[in-house]
Simulated scan of single mutants.
Amino acid sequence: MTPLADALFRPVRVGNAFEETVERLMRAIRLGAVGPGERLPAERELARRLGVSRVTLREAIRSLQDEGFVESRRGRYGGTFVTASVPVAPAGGHVPAGELLDAVTLRSVLETGAAECAAGRALGAVDRRDLLARLAECRDAAVDEYRRKDSRLHLAIAEATGSASLTAAVADVRMRVNELLDRIPLLPRNLAHSNEQHEVIVTRILAGDAEAARRAMAEHLDGTALLLRGFLT
């Protein structure tokens, strides 16, 4: 393994282990640390380096295999190999790092603040029902409508703050982020994880725990930012 690959395959954090594993693998592929036709480190070794379970690693590799970035080969000289022709991006192209950073930073500031503010308010029955309804819609959404339902939930959280200006700002930044999200694949494991995080966020808001709601939203947004960086920069 090259020194670059050594640096890239460093331990990931716990909260978004799947998303960060995908980001690590994509960065290694994008930077040429593991080139077209070359084999990734053995599963046991790679899981150890990344500090993740082999189940998490397999889910990440399977997701990239489904999108055409890697392929599995059987036999004595088998393993997981980077495909000979790596896709440029599933539905788009390279995004300048500064442009991506600007969008995800603004989103983080606005939406973590919105979650904290919503949790700090004495929410009425209508707001509470709306949050739970949007949460259920997102959880039950088909893949092709997931991003729309996801947007509705995040906007419902902003609306629960009672600030029309904040809601408008969240809507604006969500439009920017959705344009970026449309360029990357929908990974089933990521969607399941997002729904788990949504449940935590809404539960914290309804319980009136402002600090926990903020932390939960920050962790959730970090997962999305990791995938955007992995696929687009």
Results as ranks from 00 to 15, higher is better:
Ala118Tyr: 01
Ala118Ser: 09
Ala118His: 10
Ala118Thr: 04
Ala119His: 03
Ala119Tyr: 04
Gly120Tyr: 06
Gly120Val: 07
Arg121Cys: 13
Arg121Met: 01
Ala122Met: 14
Ala122Arg: 14
Leu123Pro: 07
Leu123Phe: 05
Gly124Arg: 05
Gly124Tyr: 11
Gly124Cys: 13
Val126Ile: 13
Val126His: 14
Val126Arg: 13
Asp127Gly: 07
Asp127Val: 06
Asp127Phe: 09
Arg128Cys: 06
Arg128Gln: 07
Arg128Phe: 05
Arg129Trp: 15
Arg129Phe: 12
Arg129Glu: 15
Arg129Met: 14
Arg129Gln: 14
Asp130Arg: 11
Asp130Tyr: 10
Leu131Gly: 09
Leu132Arg: 07
Ala133Leu: 12
Ala133Val: 08
Arg134Ala: 06
Leu135Glu: 01
Leu135Gln: 05
Leu135Ala: 00
Ala136Thr: 10
Ala136Leu: 08
Glu137Ser: 12
Glu137Arg: 06
Arg139Lys: 02
Asp140Thr: 04
Asp140Phe: 06
Ala141Ile: 05
Ala142His: 00
Ala142Ser: 00
Val143Arg: 08
Val143Thr: 02
Asp144Ala: 04
Asp144Lys: 02
Asp144Val: 04
Asp144Gln: 13
Glu145Phe: 00
Glu145Met: 02
Tyr146Ser: 00
Tyr146Asn: 01
Tyr146Gly: 01
Tyr146Phe: 13
Arg147Gln: 01
Arg147Glu: 03
Arg147Val: 00
Arg147Thr: 03
Arg148His: 00
Lys149Gly: 03
Asp150Arg: 03
Asp150His: 01
Ser151Gln: 02
Arg152Ile: 01
Leu153Ser: 02
His154Ala: 05
His154Lys: 07
His154Cys: 00
His154Asn: 08
His154Leu: 11
Leu155Ala: 07
Leu155Asn: 09
Leu155Ile: 09
Leu155His: 12
Ala156Met: 08
Ala156Phe: 10
Ala156Ile: 01
Ile157Asn: 02
Ile157Gln: 01
Ile157Lys: 02
Ala158Ser: 03
Glu159Leu: 14
Glu159Ile: 13
Glu159Ala: 15
Glu159Arg: 15
Glu159Asn: 13
Ala160Tyr: 04
Ala160Pro: 11
Thr161Ser: 10
Gly162Ala: 14
Gly162Ile: 08
Gly162Tyr: 07
Ser163Ile: 15
Ser163Asp: 15
Ser163Pro: 09
Ser163Ala: 12
Ser163Trp: 15
Ala164Gly: 15
Ser165Arg: 14
Ser165Leu: 04
Ser165Thr: 14
Leu166Cys: 10
Leu166Pro: 11
Thr167Pro: 09
Thr167Asp: 05
Ala168Pro: 03
Ala168Trp: 04
Ala168Lys: 15
Ala168Asp: 13
Ala168Phe: 09
Ala169His: 01
Ala169Gln: 14
Ala169Lys: 10
Ala169Arg: 12
Ala169Thr: 06
Val170Leu: 15
Val170Lys: 09
Ala171Pro: 05
Ala171Ser: 14
Ala171Gln: 10
Ala171Thr: 11
Asp172Arg: 11
Asp172Gln: 07
Val173Met: 07
Val173Ser: 03
Arg174His: 11
Arg174Pro: 01
Arg174Phe: 01
Met175Pro: 08
Arg176Gly: 10
Arg176Ile: 15
Val177Ala: 13
Val177Ile: 03
Asn178Leu: 11
Asn178Asp: 12
